[in-house]
Design a protein around this nucleic acid. Structure first.
Length: 492
RNA sequence: GGCCCCUUGGUGUAAUUGGUUAACACAUCGCCCUUUCAAGGCGAAGAGUACGGGUUCAACUCCCGUAGGGGUCACCA
């Protein structure tokens, strides 16, 4: 382990899905590692067996793979510092806990949860500024401890916070933050079941894995003093800390499930590109300082620095994400979009249609500049894949005139005479009809769109007609001519 | 409540280690364009930097206070 090589880690606990806030933490760690030629490690913090969720780890790893944050060491990628599941490192934590007890920096505590909650209640009633463990078990005699142990009394191990000078956190994002020792509780290090708490496992693993920079969410800032005390007690050099601002709901509370989607997989399912998600989440708390907001992953790697990370929390505002998605979509290769479109179609009601690539490519060509999601190709433009079953009444009201039937009939005649029309032919023919009728092209364009698509919005009409093809266009118009006039009559 | 963090338009970010008419983007609104539009172009409105005091020739940038918001106070991470 070279001192010069930064080593960072993303250490999620497998709760069932990857939170977008976690995604950002992972991304910043990843960017920092890549920018500085370091290693990015994934460690699974599964020390709470009560919260075990079936399939959570797999899901987490799948999601990280999907967004493409390749880790150098972690599950399925052995480095020299594994295992990377904390549940597999129990003996390691025990060893250091024993050492701490030996040194007097930790002690066994046999207090029952009943006594603990009673104590807390008491302290609350007494209006003590803060509830803290009363160090009752620190003063147990050697004999008492031996007796308890031989009786097999369940116990935990606590950190022994002694009096002393203030604990100073040097943080890359927040500079210096100081805590007095009175404020630090005798934190539980090892639980009754022998599993370590976050604080213990985190410090031990970060040290053993050679972590040089601890980059994590701000919610950890107030427990960092405990971690520093642990490093000191074990005689270990402190890593650099960087506490990231939180992601917030629109009301500025911590981003939560209740107010929208927080799982990365939700955004994936909605059709967001990973590039857009990463870009968006990166922007929530960081910028390169050059007013640029469209980021590729390479741009981010090249420009990332923890010094430019913001201090204040950022509201997770979907509108900007949608815009970014559209922007990223447009930089995608057409063949990539074709594949995405095919995937979307597979899970749509059009899955049984035999659609060839050339046809889909034409649709992509016509739509790519005006949508934010590939999904919109399917969801918002069914007319590419099926004949209209209804016609938008508000469009009929506004665009269907007395001469629409006649004009469309003439247009059909003109089209029938054409052989293998190209896009321009649809336009020329339409303009000819308009000219002969001495009216504007719009008089024909709107009814033509309505008749062939059923709606009033979509790609350029000529694109639409060309994509549908001559036979289909004629049949759709003839069908529409039978239906629309009746509707018009009914609604006027 | 204790401790800690934060505070630039509605939102996300800028603002040469004090000197700008406080910039950009999203969203909003308007106009233009293709007689569609969700795209594009142009433009408008929107903050005087939470508030109040200092320091300074000069403060969004430094200091103090106040307010508001947030985080944390578990045998959860």
């Amino acid at each position: 382990m070279n001192d010069k090589t930064p080593r960072v880690r993303f250490a999620p606990s497998p709760t069932g899905y990857l939170h977008v806030g976690g995604l950002r933490t992972a991304l910043y760690n990843y960017l920092f590692a890549k920018r500085n030629g370091g290693k990015f490690i994934l460690r699974i913090e599964d020390t709470d067996r009560n919260r075990f969720v079936e399939g959570a780890v797999e899901n987490l790893i799948d999601t990280i793979n999907w967004v493409g944050l390749d880790y150098d060491e972690g599950p399925n990628k052995d480095g020299e510092t594994g295992p990377y599941f904390q549940s597999e490192r129990l003996s390691i934590y025990k060893k250091y806990a024993d050492q701490l007890i030996e040194q007097g920096d930790a002690y066994r505590c046999f207090c029952t949860t009943e006594r603990l909650s009673a104590l807390r209640e008491e302290q609350q009633k007494a209006k003590l500024p803060q509830a803290k463990y009363d160090k009752h078990c620190l003063h147990l005699s050697k004999d008492e401890i031996e007796k308890n142990l031989s009786e097999g009394k369940p116990h935990i191990v606590r950190l022994n916070v002694k009096e002393g000078e203030n604990v100073l956190i040097r943080d890359i994002v927040r500079d210096e933050v100081e805590f007095t020792r009175e404020v630090i509780d005798d934190q539980v290090l090892i639980k009754t079941d022998g599993f370590p708490t976050y604080h213990m496992a985190n410090v031990v693993d970060d040290y053993l894995m050679g972590i040089t920079h601890v980059i994590r969410g701000e919610e950890w800032l107030s427990s960092t003093p405990k971690h520093i005390l642990l490093y000191n007690a074990l005689g270990w050099k402190l890593p650099q800390f960087a506490h990231l601002p939180l992601l917030l709901n629109a009301d500025r509370s911590k981003l939560s499930k209740r107010q929208g989607d927080v799982a990365v997989e939700d955004y994936k399912a909605k059709g967001y590109l990973k590039e857009a998600l990463l870009n968006f989440v990166a922007l929530l708390g960081w910028s390169a300082g050059d007013n640029e907001e469209f980021f590729t992953i390479d741009y981010m790697i090249e420009n990332f620095s923890l010094e430019r990370v913001h201090k204040a929390g950022a509201i997770f505002n979907i509108e900007k994400l949608d815009w970014l998605n559209a922007e990223h979509l447009r930089t995608k290769d057409k063949s990539l979009i074709l594949n995405m479109l095919k995937e979307e179609l597979k899970v749509s009601k059009y899955k049984d249609l035999q659609l060839n690539d050339d046809f889909l490519l034409l649709i992509i060509e016509a739509m790519i500049e005006r949508v934010s999601f590939v999904r919109e190709f399917v969801d918002n433009s069914p007319y590419f894949f099926e004949r209209p079953s209804t016609y938008d009444e508000s469009v009929i009201k506004k665009r269907w005139k007395d001469d629409s039937v006649e004009l469309l009939q003439k247009y059909v005649e003109k089209l029938s005479a054409l052989e293998n029309p190209i896009k321009e032919d649809y336009e020329t023919a339409l303009k000819q009809v308009a000219e002969e009728a001495e009216c504007g092209a719009g008089r024909l364009i709107h009814p033509a769109r309505l008749a062939t698509s059923g709606v009033g919005i979509g790609p350029g009409v000529y694109d639409l007609l060309y994509i549908l093809g001559k036979e289909e266009v004629i049949e759709r118009i003839i069908e529409a001519l039978k239906v629309i006039p009746e509707i018009k009559l009914k609604i006027s």
